[in-house]
Simulated scan of single mutants.
Amino acid sequence: MQVFRGIPTYNERPCVLTIGNFDGVHLGHQALLARLRHRAATLGLPSAVMTFEPLPREYFAQNDAPPRLTSLRRKLELLEAQGVNQVYVQPFNAAFSSLSAEDFIDRVLVRGLRARHLLIGDDFCFGKGRQGNFETLRAAGDLRGFRVEALDTVDLGGERVSSSAVRAAMLEGDMVHANMLLGAPFEVVGRVMHGDKIGRTIGFPTANIQLRQKTMPLSGIFAVTVAGGPLDHVPGAASLGVRPTIGDKLALRLEVFVLDFDGDLYHQQLRVRFWRKIRNEAKYDSLTELTTAIARDCEQVRQYFATGDNY
């Protein structure tokens, strides 16, 4: 998959294009991308995704934007897994956000990317003040030589599949529902870094996973599986949060205690899949109380995976 930073002034080859945030690459996104691949194969053109960094809501509401489901790097991984040929990562800034709908069509769609066929979600709007919509695009396409296709929302059990719905499920601690909407277990990928090694002193050495996001829509203690290095989807207990027992207002951290493993994981890149939330974070008065709580968490994780039909 080719990844480009920004939009070219002129694309050498036309493409079949879709545009969006694609946060989480959930089932709704996957349906759109499947249609994109089909159209691209039919026309003999590359499939292309245009996405944004930062996300528009992060630009307009920096202190009030919802936490992301995926970092940019993780999103690119997921798009590649969906068979996308090209991704254009457009910096969302003052200049871009001020483009009129007409300028967006001319500079981005027609000259920049040479979109031959454009697929959009049923709620897609664009241009300064969100002045452009499907009808705007269809009228422009008739004049400028590209077709526009809108896909209906994916419905799952009467619920609209969206990044907001996934985020809401995670905030409620319902990983089963969140994973259903995603179409796969929520996964965090990161390298194991050196930490303060407190877990080692209390008998629960943890892998400190480097996070590429300052905020996430979930926190607490989770039943997870871990893959990477010497591990092949091994059960573990993960803590995602700010460690209230250790300090005050610490940065978000993901720590994983891998069950029945005694080895060196430093600098390994691990993939942590979240299956079930065990409990919320809690502050304990001593490391002894914390140790007892971790032991209890690990036992619940063992019981969860002992059923054999969870992963």
Rank of each mutant, 00 (worst) to 15 (best):
G183H: 12
M216C: 13
L151A: 00
A140Y: 01
S163K: 05
S162Y: 09
A207P: 10
E149Y: 03
K128C: 14
G190P: 12
G158T: 01
A207K: 08
E187C: 13
T153D: 04
G145K: 00
L182F: 12
R160K: 11
A139Q: 15
N179G: 03
R191Q: 11
L119N: 00
V161T: 05
I202V: 14
G141V: 00
D155H: 11
L137M: 00
G195H: 04
S164R: 12
V176W: 14
F134M: 06
S162L: 07
G183V: 10
M175I: 10
L218Q: 02
G199H: 05
T153Q: 13
T225R: 15
F222W: 08
F134P: 02
G203K: 07
A178I: 02
G183T: 12
G158D: 01
R160I: 06
D122W: 14
R212V: 07
E135W: 07
L181P: 06
E187V: 14
I198D: 08
A184K: 13
L137F: 00
L137W: 00
R144A: 05
G199C: 04
G157F: 05
V166S: 04
I202W: 08
N133Q: 12
V148D: 07
D152C: 06
E187K: 15
A207D: 11
L171S: 14
N208D: 02
I202H: 05
M180Q: 15
S162K: 10
S164Y: 05
A150L: 01
E135R: 09
N179A: 03
S162F: 10
E159P: 00
H194E: 09
S164W: 04
G127E: 07
F124E: 08
V166I: 11
G173A: 10
F126N: 06
Q210T: 05
D152R: 13
S162M: 09
G199Q: 04
D174F: 08
V224W: 13
R200S: 07
T153N: 06
D122S: 13
G195A: 04
P205N: 06
V154M: 09
G195S: 03
F126L: 06
F124Q: 06
F186A: 13
E172A: 15
L119A: 00
K128S: 15
V192K: 07
D174P: 11
A140M: 03
S219M: 08
K214R: 10
S164K: 09
A168G: 08
F134N: 04
H194K: 08
C125E: 11
G158N: 02
E172P: 04
P217E: 09
R138C: 08
R138S: 09
A169W: 15
G190R: 09
M175Q: 13
G220V: 04
I221F: 09
M216A: 13
N133M: 10
E149K: 03
I120N: 02
I120E: 02
E172S: 15
C125N: 08
M180P: 01
P217V: 09
D174G: 15
V166W: 01
P185A: 13
R138A: 13
I120S: 01
C125M: 09
D196S: 12
L119W: 00
V154C: 04
A165S: 07
